[in-house]
Amino acid sequence: MEVRTIKVFTTVDNINLHTQVVDMSMTYGQQFGPTYLDGADVTKIKPHNSHEGKTFYVLPNDDTLRVEAFEYYHTTDPSFLGRYMSALNHTKKWKYPQVNGLTSIKWADNNCYLATALLTLQQIELKFNPPALQDAYYRARAGEAANFCALILAYCNKTVGELGDVRETMSYLFQHANLDSCKRVLNVVCKTCGQQQTTLKGVEAVMYMGTLSYEQFKKGVQIPCTCGKQATKYLVQQESPFVMMSAPPAQYELKHGTFTCASEYTGNYQCGHYKHITSKETLYCIDGALLTKSSEYKGPITDVFYKENSYTTTIK
């Protein structure tokens, strides 16, 4: 009895394709271990004539594949690729409408935090270190965002349907971005203890939790000093293409032309909904596939993004 075979390709990165001759009487799992086709788990399936010449994702289970996976995804987590594939199996079914010149995501599976993050990423200057993220990001900007969303979920250790947080998501993504040249110098002034300067680099240099107003941050924000008295913390120097200011959701007025974009969060910790506000020729609110415009805006804002380049204080 002759062994019926077909020729397929296996890959971990969709760049390096490895030619395989597979036995049609055995499952993919018996031949390769966990195997995925377009995100779908085909591990328990036997090869079919229609699979001839198709590319299958496999887990990096030998040295060659491990090197290829690390170079593309910059992670050695053995569960990463499987999590990416199972997320992709959902995100490829989502709709990605162009809204006001940006790629958004039609609401499904509690994905409003991903839509808000995706919209924000198209408006701030950011370059990702893992080629996987950078490639998928370019495709997302062009309207094909399924891979990018699935990668975000995998890097953030999230599953489809789980509630997510924009600030946490951005923080994970910033860790995989090139923020080497970003720098922030802060000064804390206390009447009792004097003053202390701190220099922050990388992710810490672009994120701040405690106030939404970048102007206020430049002037000074009140913080408790270690001595128990009130101290003032203010920005001395900022070198970065953008800054992200966050605070627990509270009524906040966004003035046209003073910011790049913002995240609105309605609801409580267990259950809520994100919308995205962007400042173009007027203010726009993007909620999944829905767009509304207004000249002014007041609502429960939790993150505001500002364009920056270089700032030095005039406070002496």
Results as ranks from 00 to 15, higher is better:
1 M>I: 05
3 V>S: 12
3 V>K: 14
6 I>A: 09
7 K>Q: 12
9 F>K: 10
9 F>T: 09
10 T>G: 07
10 T>I: 14
11 T>N: 06
12 V>L: 10
14 N>D: 15
14 N>Y: 12
18 H>P: 06
18 H>V: 10
20 Q>Y: 11
21 V>L: 13
22 V>M: 10
22 V>Q: 05
22 V>W: 03
27 T>M: 07
27 T>D: 14
28 Y>C: 04
29 G>S: 09
31 Q>E: 09
34 P>L: 09
35 T>V: 05
36 Y>D: 05
36 Y>Q: 05
39 G>E: 10
39 G>P: 05
39 G>N: 11
40 A>R: 10
40 A>E: 09
40 A>D: 10
41 D>R: 08
41 D>A: 14
43 T>R: 11
43 T>E: 15
44 K>Q: 15
47 P>R: 05
47 P>G: 09
47 P>H: 03
49 N>P: 13
49 N>M: 14
51 H>S: 07
52 E>M: 12
53 G>K: 11
53 G>V: 07
54 K>Y: 15
54 K>V: 13
54 K>W: 13
55 T>S: 13
55 T>F: 08
58 V>P: 05
58 V>M: 09
60 P>Y: 07
60 P>W: 09
60 P>N: 07
62 D>R: 11
62 D>Y: 08
63 D>V: 09
63 D>W: 08
64 T>C: 13
64 T>N: 11
65 L>I: 08
66 R>E: 14
68 E>R: 10
70 F>H: 11
74 H>W: 07
75 T>H: 08
76 T>M: 15
77 D>C: 13
78 P>K: 13
79 S>F: 15
79 S>I: 10
79 S>V: 10
80 F>L: 06
83 R>G: 06
83 R>S: 08
83 R>Q: 08
85 M>T: 05
85 M>I: 10
87 A>I: 07
88 L>A: 05
89 N>P: 10
92 K>Y: 12
92 K>F: 06
94 W>G: 01
95 K>Q: 15
96 Y>P: 01
97 P>K: 07
97 P>A: 09
99 V>L: 12
100 N>K: 14
101 G>M: 05
102 L>F: 11
102 L>I: 07
102 L>M: 15
102 L>G: 04
102 L>Q: 05
103 T>W: 13
103 T>G: 03
106 K>Q: 06
106 K>N: 14
107 W>V: 03
110 N>Y: 04
111 N>Q: 04
112 C>R: 02
115 A>M: 07
118 L>N: 01
120 T>F: 03
121 L>G: 02
121 L>N: 03
121 L>Y: 03
121 L>D: 03
121 L>M: 12
122 Q>W: 04
123 Q>V: 06
124 I>Q: 03
125 E>H: 13
127 K>L: 10
129 N>Y: 09
132 A>F: 04
132 A>Y: 03
133 L>K: 00
133 L>C: 03
134 Q>R: 14
135 D>A: 11
136 A>P: 03
137 Y>N: 05
138 Y>W: 12
139 R>D: 12
140 A>L: 11
142 A>D: 14
142 A>K: 11
142 A>E: 14
145 A>D: 02
148 F>L: 12
149 C>N: 05
153 L>K: 00
153 L>S: 04
153 L>N: 01
153 L>F: 07
154 A>L: 02
156 C>S: 13
156 C>E: 02
157 N>C: 10
159 T>P: 11
160 V>G: 05
161 G>C: 05
164 G>P: 00
164 G>F: 02
166 V>P: 01
166 V>A: 11
168 E>S: 09
170 M>R: 01
171 S>I: 15
174 F>M: 07
177 A>M: 05
179 L>D: 01
180 D>V: 08
181 S>T: 11
183 K>P: 02
183 K>I: 14
184 R>N: 00
186 L>T: 10
187 N>C: 12
187 N>A: 12
194 G>C: 03
196 Q>K: 13
196 Q>H: 10
196 Q>F: 14
197 Q>W: 08
198 T>C: 09
198 T>N: 11
200 L>I: 14
201 K>F: 13
202 G>C: 03
203 V>S: 13
209 M>S: 12
209 M>K: 13
212 L>S: 01
213 S>C: 08
216 Q>Y: 06
220 G>R: 02
220 G>M: 02
221 V>H: 08
225 C>K: 00
226 T>F: 10
226 T>A: 13
226 T>L: 09
227 C>K: 00
228 G>N: 04
230 Q>E: 12
231 A>N: 00
231 A>R: 05
232 T>D: 06
232 T>H: 09
234 Y>L: 08
234 Y>G: 01
235 L>T: 02
235 L>C: 06
235 L>E: 00
235 L>Q: 01
237 Q>G: 07
237 Q>M: 10
238 Q>D: 01
239 E>H: 11
239 E>Q: 12
242 F>A: 05
242 F>K: 00
243 V>S: 01
243 V>N: 00
245 M>Y: 03
246 S>V: 03
247 A>D: 02
250 A>N: 13
255 K>F: 08
257 G>V: 02
258 T>F: 07
259 F>A: 01
259 F>E: 00
262 A>L: 00
262 A>E: 00
262 A>K: 00
265 Y>H: 00
266 T>W: 07
268 N>W: 06
268 N>G: 15
269 Y>K: 07
269 Y>W: 15
270 Q>F: 15
271 C>D: 07
272 G>C: 00
272 G>F: 00
273 H>P: 01
274 Y>F: 06
274 Y>A: 01
275 K>D: 00
279 S>Q: 05
280 K>Y: 08
281 E>T: 05
281 E>C: 02
282 T>A: 15
282 T>H: 12
283 L>T: 05
283 L>I: 13
287 D>K: 00
288 G>Q: 00
290 L>H: 14
292 T>W: 07
293 K>T: 13
293 K>C: 10
296 E>Q: 13
297 Y>L: 02
297 Y>D: 00
298 K>Y: 14
300 P>K: 07
302 T>F: 00
303 D>Y: 00
303 D>G: 00
304 V>K: 00
305 F>V: 06
308 E>M: 13
309 N>Y: 07
311 Y>H: 09
312 T>C: 15
315 I>A: 11
